[in-house]
Design a protein around this nucleic acid. Sequence first.
DNA 1: ACTTCGACCTGTTGGC
DNA 2: TGCCAACAGGTCGAAG
Length: 271
Amino acid sequence: MPELPEVETTRLGITPHIVQHKVIRVIVRHKQLRWPISDDLTTELPQQTIHSVTRRGKYLLLQANRGAVILHLGMSGRLRILPANHLAEKHDHVDIIFDNNLCLRFTDPRRFGAIIWTRDNPLHHPLLIKLGEEPLAENFTGKFLYQRSRQRKTSIKQFIMDSHIVVGVGNIYANEALFAAGINPKTAAGHISQNNYRRLVHSIKQVLLAAIAQGGTTLRDFRSSDGKPGYFIQELKVYGKAGMPCVNCKTKLKEIRLGQRSTVYCPKCQN
DNA sequence: ACTTCGACCTGTTGGC
DNA sequence: TGCCAACAGGTCGAAG
């Protein structure tokens, strides 16, 4: 489900319901996520107020008085705002219940997600400290990618999906941004010109911003925190469209695998 | 330092 | 209809 636009959509959806509200109780039904949920979450978070909900890459950060929740949705995770007494179903692993009688519910069938409690600055956490640039920040430029990619033999697609370089570019939007920039996903990152990196960075920003504006991409069952689907799927040009004609030139879109991930591109427009 | 690959899980899809 | 393999929005960490 979640790439950066879906995470951002989630952040915007939950923020007004939990910021400035005090946590009453934390219910952990299944602590075995990517890493086991620490008991400290259940014991320390109650009675603290959430002061902000921010995002770093695909991590959501819930800042409390004396600590923070670091939350990742993994591949199938989802957050919803529900009435505090809402019946829990099979994959509803965690509830954080607030003083306004609402509940922030974490649901994740595959359990690749993570919920981590830290007493320190969450940005200093080992998982976050090494992250690369934010794609929508001004620091993320063609020059930056060009400099970081010299001597790199890895494909450009894997390079822009590497969170130590730039965060938040997942498989859908990597495919889409490369199509928009007219770059073949197999190209060695170290062989791309600074000019093409400028075009690529522009495309990444555009694709992500457009997807955020549409509330993310709904593939199977992504819903924002209030239950609405994302509409960006209508704008996808290559992802999930192998074998179909390119929207620009009608050439049959080709599918290959890069880094074990499905990669779709137009062999003519992206050469 | 870089690259590749297995691992973590469940649910859905497509081929036979 | 049933079965089974392959695949799915992520990314860490080990091994080469």
